[in-house]
Computed example of a mutant assay.
Amino acid sequence: MRLLSVIVPCYNEEENIADFYNEVLKNEAYFKGHDVDFEFIYVNDGSKDKTVEKVKELAAKDERVHLINFSRNFGKEPAMYAGLEKSKGDYVAIMDCDLQDPPALLPQMYEAIVNEGYDSVATRRVDRKGEPPIRSFFARMFYRLINKVSKTEIVDGARDYRLMTRQFVNAILSMKEYNRFSKGIFGWVGFKNKWIEFENIERMKGETKWSFWKLFVYALDGIVAFSTVPLAFASLIGVLFCVLAFFFIIFTIVRKSLYGDPTSGWPSLVCIILLVSGVQLFCIGIVGQYLSKTYLEVKKRPLYIVKEEI
């Protein structure tokens, strides 16, 4: 019998643990008919509620339920990586616990891998119903921007919800970088991929853990991880301002020589200094982002620390 590993990153999801488990098991008859069994890998990312207790209750009833309990909150990316490392399945699915990733799609995704020869079947939302308009706007702008500056295709509305073959999972695990952006990593490794679209589903219970600021930082990580264009942009701005400064110097010298105009105008000079200083700090900030990521990589700290494993 083949095995399907379902990886479930969790952070303060006590209300959704059992509901998610029950929804996935609605597909059990289909997978049993195809000689496939489940294993559930719940990865608790430092939850402050009763998430761990709820998972342990499930594990006591079903030996297919496993728990990886982090020592603190490390983030969703390390949680997904930990689940991939611990998974033993011939096929591996990553799903959110809040049921925004519909488990009913699993049979269709499995069919695409087994019968159509795909290595990975991913999902994307075709709308952003229920999201604040300003958040949806910036999300769309992010996908447009990153696809212009990066050679790795990152699909608008892409979810982390996908079903993968073991070969695909092993390719992901071979990328041991500390600063992880899985949406880019999934695209970078290649293989044959299929996209399934669905309408946005609002979370069943609880509140989202992704604030606007967290999403902004995550987007910034994605751009830095999969493009060096910002560094080239900073260099281009530096060259541009050098050229402008050279022409202004020539202009000032010529005007003084021909017309004897005094080089006055300290308010405009102050404005120019402030503008150039701001641009310099902006470019230094871009370089600083890449330097900080390099700093974190070379320290070789573990992605996560496990406190308890069941």
Rank of each mutant, 00 (worst) to 15 (best):
Asn179Ala: 13
Asp261Gln: 15
Lys299Ile: 13
Lys88Pro: 03
Ser5Asp: 00
Lys32Cys: 00
Phe168Asn: 05
Leu240Ile: 09
Pro132Asp: 08
Glu23Thr: 03
Ala112Glu: 08
Ala139His: 10
Gly117Asp: 07
Thr228Val: 15
Asp160Cys: 13
Tyr143Leu: 06
Lys307Ala: 12
Ala158Val: 15
Pro103Glu: 03
Ser87Gly: 09
Val279Phe: 09
Arg255Val: 15
Ala112Phe: 01
Arg128Glu: 13
Lys48Ser: 12
Ile253Asp: 01
Ile17Asn: 02
Gly187Val: 03
Arg162Ser: 07
Ser150Ile: 05
Asp119Lys: 05
Glu77His: 13
Asn69Ser: 14
Asp37Gln: 10
Met95Trp: 00
Ile68Met: 11
Lys148Thr: 10
Tyr110Lys: 00
Ile250Pro: 05
Val6Leu: 09
Phe282Tyr: 14
Ser211His: 11
Glu63Gln: 12
Ala232Leu: 14
Leu25Glu: 02
Asp19Lys: 09
Asp261Val: 14
Asn115Trp: 01
Arg301Thr: 08
His34Ser: 07
Asn147Leu: 07
Asp156Ser: 13
Pro302Thr: 02
Ala59Ser: 11
Phe181Trp: 07
Lys183Arg: 10
Thr51Arg: 02
Asp98Tyr: 02
Phe38Cys: 01
Asn179Trp: 02
Tyr259Ile: 07
Tyr91Pro: 02
Phe70Met: 07
Thr294Arg: 12
Phe38Leu: 01
Glu63Ile: 10
Val126Gln: 11
Phe186Met: 10
Arg128Ala: 15
Ala139Lys: 10
Glu131Met: 06
Ala79His: 09
Glu28His: 04
Met1Gln: 06
Glu28Leu: 07
Val55Trp: 03
Ala59Ile: 12
Phe191Thr: 00
Lys50Val: 10
Gly238Glu: 13
Pro78Arg: 09
Leu67Val: 06
Arg72Ile: 01
Ser264Val: 15
Glu197Thr: 07
Lys26Phe: 04
Glu131Thr: 02
Lys32Glu: 04
Ile272Glu: 05
Phe20His: 14
Ser277Tyr: 12
Val24Phe: 01
Asn12Ser: 07
Ser292Cys: 09
Asn27Thr: 08
Asp261Lys: 09
Val8His: 10
Tyr143Arg: 01
Glu85Gly: 09
Lys76Thr: 08
Ser71Trp: 00
Glu28Met: 01
Ser268Glu: 12
Lys32Thr: 03
Val65Ala: 01
Leu215Val: 13
Leu58Asn: 02
Thr252Lys: 12
Ala93Leu: 03
Met109Val: 01
Thr51Met: 09
Gly46Ala: 01
Glu63His: 11
Lys61Ala: 11
Leu145Glu: 08
Ala158Lys: 04
Glu308Lys: 07
Ala225Gly: 01
Leu244Asp: 11
Gln289Arg: 13
Asn170Tyr: 08
Thr165Gly: 00
Ser257Asp: 11
Asn27Leu: 02
Tyr304Lys: 03
Phe198Arg: 08
Gly33His: 03
Arg135Lys: 14
Glu53Trp: 03
Glu85Val: 12
Phe181Lys: 04
Ile284Gly: 11
Leu4Glu: 06
Phe186Trp: 06
Lys54Asn: 15
Lys86Leu: 02
Ile146Arg: 05
Gly190Glu: 12
Glu153Pro: 00
Leu25Arg: 07
Leu220Arg: 08
Ile185Lys: 11
Glu39Arg: 03
Ser235Lys: 12
Gly187Pro: 00
Ile273Met: 08
Val92Gln: 10
Lys194Glu: 06
Phe198Asp: 07
Ile94Ser: 11
Ala93Met: 03
